[in-house]
Design a protein around this nucleic acid. Structure first.
Lengths: 359, 359
DNA sequence: CTGAAAGCGCTTACAG
DNA sequence: CTGAAAGCGCTTACAG
């Protein structure tokens, strides 16, 4: 019974006003081939009828659905909310709807998911690929959000610079021994983050990388990371490539009776939702997904527009295009919280320090 | 250059075979008005051409887009991945695509988001409403996933029973004093969970509710919850309505030098991604989103089908329907992990216990 | 400045 | 069993 969808059409407006539907279409599209007064009258009755153009009719005629597909390696990814939200917002601002496709972490399913989107005639696709997966050439423009070091990447956070920001920050606090915690050595994103960290080691510093997947392959899934031993070895900075691993490290350290940030510092990545509410709160690095999404969508829209313009009306392009943007990487921002409190210095200086308030 | 979208149409197949497009359509739809051999021939050439029906053409003709909208209060919600994944999977199995709409936690924006979906002619909508928000009557079938106590709820987890499972479990471990931790007293889901917990207090038990939002209104955002004092008051079980709050409580307790699970137990809800990787791992309650999503989608499809069947071809219904399902609630499953280890008993018994392995 | 016509790809009565 | 026709709602050349 709502007014929101009376389902009026161009034809109704046209017959009501005694004009042709073409004129109504032109008037509403502001194509200027209609006299000002008639255009006004048309707009007025369209508004009073609550007219909403049929995307379907338009799509059939123009060959464009105004819908984009969003493909993620694994929707269960804790970063997914941020990504989906940013993409949806940017897409919606650009006049596109967003159809989601999940591949449940399965690479084969990723192709299937993309095909489902294509069968629905999406105008373009945003892919956040799984660990360096190549995106097969599909018949639509594709924007890839992965990492600047990935070939074909359209735009992404500057993970390398994010890693640098972390180590710069910790080095300034006096840290010299860094344990860098990653999950999977095949991930471009993780490698960039860790590469950036390594690139900023202070002169007398040292770093070691702990790949959780390898560790678990030996010790079993969920096995402790042995961080207490690492502390004994002199590591004072534990830098994870994700807040999730940082949280795992933090709770393992605390469980082993090691005080954070008094004895060691812990940092993560991505500013996941829990990072600000835990005690001590987690120092992390945040990507600017809003900007990334806007750049990706802009690149995609541009490709879609030129695609349809360039071709004779009937023809439909079948060449999949990896879309490019002028700005290929967006800086990440360090978010300093308690786990890298000012009190965390190198071990030998620790006994000089006053008691910490954060316990 | 890929084969995936050659863009062949019914007409091409028809002219190629010298039959009418109507016959091709019927053959491919298996409507049986076509001789078996012709049907076979048609299917074969369709396959060899890589024919994919145009959803757009079909939509324009049938009035059904085979697309559902998914509206969430706030995509940033940590539960969103689970929900979106389950809905997408169930929808896809039922032949629907899923268009996402985010309202950024803003109630006004929720209406705007729904309207955007309607303008795209979705066949139906799945809404996970924000804290007891009523869903306005829109011109499409709507499935609501909230809580069984919400009027108009289609299907949801049985949050009440989940709360019962938590307290049953803890009572069996010997707990008598429960601090129930919620965020917002206006949330149906949270109230159900807490109500269920209260309903199973052991005979000599006591419970107190801590609403974080109220607490922060007084003490400031992010202020400590004062759990150390609660331990001093004799509380041994800290039961949060979400893993996020459980994590907050857990880290606050550990930071205050209180051992979990040796001295107190902590439980959460929803089995968020971090819950299994922290130390000690978090006891929680999981909803069966797969089943919930399937029930919701089934109810929606049924409504969509009867809707289009019931009406004369040209007419489009404008009555929004809150869709109902036979099974309105799905049981939740307790996931026992370390934070409610067997060692957690009432304080007076504690000194009798052997040392815990989990520190 | 305005209108008549064609057609995007499909399905559904209706004839034959 | 098969086909010709109509039409879903729109936009775009093309005439006038």
């Amino acid at each position: 019974m709502s007014v929101s969808r009376p389902g009026s059409s161009l034809n109704e407006i046209a017959t009501l006003l005694g004009v042709s539907s073409a004129t109504v279409s032109n008037a509403l599209a502001g194509k200027g081939r209609v006299s000002a007064e008639l255009a006004d009258k048309i707009r007025a009755t369209a508004a009073s009828l609550g007219y909403t153009p049929s995307m379907t009719g338009r799509a059939l005629r123009t060959g464009r659905t105004q819908v984009l597909g969003l493909v993620l390696p694994n929707i269960a990814n804790p970063l997914f909310p941020q990504i989906a939200q940013a993409i949806e917002q940017a897409a919606s601002k650009a006049g596109y709807g967003v159809l989601i496709a999940d591949s449940h972490g399965d690479i084969a399913a990723q192709t299937a998911a993309i095909n489902r989107l294509i069968e629905r005639s999406v105008d373009g696709i945003v892919v956040v690929p799984r660990r360096g997966t190549r995106v097969a050439d599909i018949g639509r423009p594709v924007a890839v959000i992965d990492s600047p070091s990935t070939p074909g990447n359209t735009v992404s956070a500057d993970h390398w610079q994010g890693g640098q920001a972390v180590v710069d920050h910790l080095a300034e606090l006096g840290h010299r021994s860094f344990l860098l915690i990653g999950n999977n050595p095949d991930s471009n994103v993780q490698n960039d983050r860790i590469g950036g960290m390594k690139s900023r080691l202070p002169a007398n510093g040292r770093a070691e990388v702990l790949w959780i997947e390898n560790h678990e392959k030996n010790k079993g899934k969920g096995a402790p990371l042995g961080l207490k031993d690492k502390v004994a070895e002199g590591f004072t900075a534990f830098c994870a490539v994700s807040d999730l691993h940082a949280l795992r490290a933090l709770t393992e350290l605390q469980g082993a009776g090691i005080a954070v940030p008094e004895q060691v510092s812990v940092t993560g990545f991505d500013d996941l939702v829990f990072s600000s509410v835990i005690t001590p709160s987690l120092t992390t690095v945040r990507m600017d997904m809003g900007t990334i999404a806007e750049i990706a969508i802009a690149a995609l829209s541009r490709a879609i527009e030129t695609e349809t313009k360039a071709l004779p009306e009937q023809l439909r392009t079948t060449s999949g295009t990896l879309v490019t943007a002028e700005q290929k990487s967006v800086p990440m921002a360090l978010v300093v919280r308690q786990t890298s409190g000012r009190r965390a210095l190198t071990p030998q200086k620790m006994d000089l320090l006053p008691e910490g308030e954060h316990r």
